[in-house]
């Protein structure tokens, strides 16, 4: 059973590596959103530090929205998805492998890029570990929840806006706890509470979302 998990994970990571240009685009998108923001607000350091949690998390949400649209689409178009559904292995496990590969190739990159960006916004270096931890715990959940939405909109040719309407309301808790942890860290307050809650959401996501993704994929294929 695990063999299929590793096979799909390896396949998708290999694909991500072969199409690494796309990953660079996602990263550039993330950087650009953050970098353009001060041009809109003015370079007042106090304002930038205040808005940085919201800014970083909104940029992550938008980048997730853009990248998630391609999560199942190629497999849907070339017929591989039918083979996933027909596999005697559990579809939820295959879905989990795909989300994990997706996260390793996009979410993890955001986590690694975040220190540079928050320092650019004038956030104190002491807050960086908490910020990275919040992204590390929050971005996989974004992928898991978002994958349900993409799976549901798979058969639609242009699902981008609809997808945002489906998944952004579900992202509210992650946004609140993620940005909340960041804000606490910047203010020098303990952020453990918010991080625990993010961790709890991640556990809930890993244990339930794959089944919802599997059900959504079957509905879209029917």
């Amino acid at each position: 059973m695990l063999s299929v998990f590793w096979a799909v994970l390896r396949r998708d990571l290999l694909l991500a590596f072969r199409q690494r240009g796309v990953l660079v685009h996602h990263l550039l998108f993330f950087v650009l959103v953050v970098a353009l923001f001060p041009l809109g607000t003015g370079a007042d350091a106090a304002i930038l530090v205040t808005v940085s949690p919201a800014l970083i998390w909104m940029a992550v949400l938008l980048a997730a929205l853009l990248s998630l649209q391609r999560l199942f689409k190629p497999d849907y178009e070339d017929g591989t998805l039918e083979q996933y559904v027909l596999s005697p292995e559990p579809l939820a496990l295959i879905a989990l492998a795909k989300v994990l590969a997706y996260w390793l190739a996009s979410g993890l990159i955001f986590v690694l890029a975040s220190p540079l960006l928050v320092l650019l916004l004038g956030v104190p270096a002491s807050a960086v570990p908490v910020i990275m931890a919040s992204l590390l715990l929050g971005t996989p959940t974004l992928g898991l929840v978002g994958a349900i939405g993409t799976a549901l909109t798979l058969s639609l040719p242009r699902a981008g806006l609809l997808l945002s309407l489906l998944i952004f309301p579900l992202y509210v808790p992650i946004l609140i706890f993620g940005a909340g942890a960041m804000r606490a860290a910047i203010a020098g307050l303990p952020a453990a509470g918010a991080l625990y809650l993010l961790g709890a959401l991640l556990v809930l996501g890993i244990t339930t979302a794959p089944f919802a993704i599997a059900a959504a994929l079957k509905i879209s294929l029917e």
Binding site: S3, V4, A7, V8, R11, L14, L15, R18, Q19, P74, D75, E77, D78, G79, T80, E82, Q83, Y84, L86, S87, P88, E89, I94
Partner: peptide, 26 residues
């Protein structure tokens, strides 16, 4: 099941594609 579509990913080689397809069949 060999569907209307080939179930081949354009960026993977035939060997890689077939390897995954067979593993999916268990």
């Amino acid at each position: 099941f060999v569907g209307h579509d080939n179930a081949l990913n354009a960026a993977l080689t035939p060997v890689e594609n077939l390897d995954v397809l067979m593993r999916l069949c268990g």
